[in-house]
Every structure is written in C-alpha cells, then in structure tokens.
Amino acid sequence: MSSIERFLPRRHLTPVSPNTTPAQDNAPVSLGIDEAPAIAVEDLCKKYHTHWAVDDVNFNVPKGWTVGLLGGNGAGKTTTIAMIMGLVVPSFGRAMVLGHDMATERHKVLSRMNFESPYVALPGRLTVRQNLTVFGRLYGVANLKARIEELIEDFELGDVLDRVTGRLSAGQKTRVAVAKALINDPDVLLLDEPTASLDPDRAEWVRSRLRAYQKRRGATILLSSHNMTEVEQLCDFVVIMSHGRIVAMGRPGELAERFKCRDLDEVFIYLARVA
C-alpha cells in the first residue's frame, strides 16, 4: 500500500481525517460541530459515460465555516460544486444545502445561496448598476438601492458603476462578480477561484472583503482555489481531491504536519504527484 492509500479507501470511501476513527470511515466526516451542517455531501458520485468525474465523496461544512476544496485540473472540484449548486444531478449520493437535497429541492434554498465562478460571466452589455439591479430583483433583495450602495462602497465600484460590464478589466469584472455573489447576503456562498484573475494586492483586498463578510454574516463559504496562500488565510478546513476522490482533508496546519510538508503548497504538490 502506498503512503497515499492510507487516506484513500477505494470504494464507499470517506477519507480519514485526523479526528475520525476507523468505525466512522463510511460516514461523512464530522468536524466536531453538533449543529446540522450548512453543506452535507454524502456518497456523492457523478459518472459521465464510463468516467467517474466524482467518486464517493463525503464531507460536511458546518455553518459559519470556510472550507477550501482543492485539487489539480480535472480533480472533480467543479463537478462537485456544480452538484452542490444543483446544476448537475448526482449519479449516486446527494448534496444537501441547509437541509435540502439540491437535486430535488433546490428552489427552497436558492434565495439563501449565491456563487461566483470563472466559467460564468455577468451579461457584458449591461452596466454594472443594471447587472446588480437585475440580480438584486431576481433574489428579491429588500431595500435594493441601499444594498447596492453598500456593495459599491465595499468593493469600490463607484467609478465603474455606469460602465458596460463587458468592457471592464479582468480584475474589475471579478470585483463585480463577487459583489453580485453577495447581493442577497447569502448564508451559503460558493466561490470557484474567486481571485484567479487578480494581482496579489487586489486578491488580498478581495480576501479581506470576504473575511469581513463572513465575520459579519456568519456565512458558510465553500471555496475552490489553486492559490494555497489564499486557502491558508481564508479556510478553517481543507478538502483535497484527485481523480474525483478525496485524498486528504483536515485543517491547513494539520495537513502540512501530517504529510511532513512545510506548507499547504507542498502538500498539494505531494498529493498531486502521489495520487
């Protein structure tokens, strides 16, 4: 058995976190929080033709936590997030958000969620103000004008407010996309590489806004990123995927210790090569 296989039961797996005992291996990993989790991923699988894009993934995200979903390209992160959002129906297992199965009851919870992804863009021909207004109305935001003013201030969008979204720089578009993701004060926020196109200064600035939002709202955040510094700064817990499976999970510091690495970057590289 290779070193990685100790963390990788082949079927019906739940990777072993430092606090779980073997008896718990087939149950979603508990993070030591008694309250019902904001996100519960149970035996989640997705098969495309003959390929398992996601294979028996289990994890819970307690309310108010920020969890990082990591993995190389093709690891299954985006498919997992898409199933949590209810945009993709699992082949097996389920993804629950705030107690609702996202395959069948997503409409009950969508107004309390939001997301940002580089695969998705805001309508480029609309101005920033028009986009925020349209999405604010779709989410039924009360006092929409005041909420948009708050976001303009938080994300320093005053200068671009009446500019066409499609003509903004990549960094400005990201700020607008994150502002849109927060327009309804979501309880659950799914972020797919939220700072990918930003310079380090702007990326840190966006992270600080996300931290402030999380602290103010007590929101639950599931974050996918290739930026390990970002993950270490933002996340309480990390789930690492490879080839559709979870290969490790734990607190960022614990993972580095467990794999005898200096930081999460090294853990990521180590797992990517071994897995």
Binding site: L87, H107, Y119, V120, G124, F135, L138
Partner: peptide
C-alpha cells in the same frame, strides 16, 4: 440565446428564477 452567448445561464439557474 443571449443568456448562452453571455455565459449567464448558470447565474440564472442558480438564482430563485423558476
């Protein structure tokens, strides 16, 4: 098709829009 061309469909599908 505007929604597809502008890559906005997922934003709509993730909103409470029925």
């Amino acid at each position: 098709l505007e929604e597809i061309w502008s890559r906005n469909l997922a934003n709509l599908m993730m909103s409470p829009l029925q």
